[in-house]
Amino acid sequence: MKKLTDDEIQQLLDAGKMPLDDNDTEQKIYQSLYGALKKEPAYGLPYGFATKVTTRVRILNDSKHTYRFYLWAFGAGLLFAALVYLGGAIFRQPYAFTLFRYKWAILFSLVTIVGIKYADHRMHLQMLAKRKRI
């Protein structure tokens, strides 16, 4: 019988056909090799991996939402102060002038609050990134 080449043996095995000659050592070796290639590694990811990843995604989502919330809060705070001032100015209310006098203090307070929240958010992400090395 004509001896099969490496290419022919591989093609037969890829097609799921057993090589014809049982006495051919090369064919036997290829069969053992194909068997070994299909074997899954003896170890894998730890039990509960899916829960671990889902928890991490939840934390990331929550922190993203928190960050967005504080940005909106900052915008809403500014808008509220502007409306109060405008309302007071139109109706000539004295508080409007007080508000205008302390405009920088109000702005500073808003920036500080949002800044602290932002820093907290960044620190939270950095803590998460400690486990992430990519």
């Binding site: 730890p46 990843v53 991490r56 992430k132 090395r133 990519i134």
Partner: peptide, 15 residues
């Protein structure tokens, strides 16, 4: 150790 971290990273990217 990196293997598990990278696997986590893959699924975060998938999400």
């Amino acid at each position: 150790q990196d293997k598990e971290d990278i696997c986590q990273e893959v699924f975060i990217k998938v999400h």
